[in-house]
Simulated scan of single mutants.
Amino acid sequence: MSVPATGAAVSARPNSTRTTFTLEGCRTGDEAFATLVAASARRHGVEPRALAVRTLLQLPRVAAHSGRVRRRDLDAELRNSAVLLRADQAKVIDLVPIDAYPLSALQFVECETDDADAIFGNLHYLRSARPGSRNFALVDPIHRRPVTLCSVSPMDWALVGKQLSRQFGVPVERMWDVSRVYSFDVAPANAISSLLKGVRNELRRSEPTAELLTTVVDQNLGFTGSSYRAANWQYWMSVRPRPYLYVDGMAISPRQMKLRYGTQSLAEVRLRYGVLAEQSRATLADSMIYCCRVRGVTEAVEPGERRRVRRRS
């Protein structure tokens, strides 16, 4: 996923005194929200972009049906997210890049699985790596630490795969999904788009049956798809949102819930495990599906031709 708009630029002005915010405003670059993120990141010694994403993931849990978020709830989620992020960063401190390098100095590599799993499992907002993935990174030339990395795996989301196959004629077994992306704050401009171009070239070379790369861009977390557009990917379809899920106040994906509890039913999880299982109430934005043909030009899809499908799994 591309870098969230809320982390792209932060203000040095004093914190806002506003008492309410909105989910839409926070995810689309509200200056007051960005200022609060920057201040909390400095206070706790964490990266602002990662903190913004983690906070945006938590806000739907405390937002009203209207999408409004009280300032005190926002402050609490910023604080809690920053404390957890600082602890997670400490777990992988030996992998965190320190020095900034120009894009031309970074090297494209297939990343060690253990390193990728550690970074995604601790720093990615989903806090997990996709099993069986191939992992790629741009690493610094001195310490060989990943500056920007992603994981790619065969498409396994049936809903999206079937719709893309029907509409664009690509067999599902020839699709690969960019399921995780993480970029440290020292990454130079265009690092993610450069990484994506390297992945496309590598799959063209080493996966002769691969025809299409796909990814999900979640607008609710401040992601806009800009890095994918810069790498010549195209916005092909959208997926209707479903509520975010939370267990004991922490966000959890349906896939993770199924793996951990054997079910995606909140009621069943509450009953069987005695945990606080809840879902967001406010309306969320659609997920955008970006695609790139592994060979040849990726055609644009006009807004009126983009399908909007219902998310079931």
Rank of each mutant, 00 (worst) to 15 (best):
V3D: 11
A5E: 13
G7H: 02
S11C: 04
S11P: 07
E24K: 09
R27T: 12
D30A: 11
E31S: 09
F33G: 04
T35I: 00
T35A: 13
V46S: 06
P48N: 00
L56A: 05
L59I: 03
P60V: 02
V69K: 04
R70Y: 10
A76N: 10
E77I: 00
L78C: 01
A90F: 00
P97K: 00
I98C: 09
Y101I: 00
P102V: 05
F108V: 03
E110N: 02
I119T: 05
R127V: 01
R130T: 10
L138C: 00
V147Q: 11
T148N: 03
L149F: 13
A158I: 02
L164N: 06
V170S: 08
V172E: 14
W176K: 04
W176T: 03
N190D: 14
I192W: 05
S193D: 03
S194E: 11
E207A: 05
P208M: 01
T209G: 11
V216C: 13
V217M: 01
V217C: 07
D218M: 01
S226N: 14
S227I: 04
R229H: 11
W233V: 04
W233M: 05
R242S: 11
M250C: 13
Y261L: 01
A267S: 12
A267H: 08
V269G: 04
V269A: 02
Y273C: 03
Y273E: 10
G274N: 10
L276Q: 15
T283S: 15
M288R: 12
V294M: 10
R295H: 13
T298Q: 07
E305Q: 15
R306G: 04
R307N: 11
V309T: 10
R310V: 09
R310P: 00
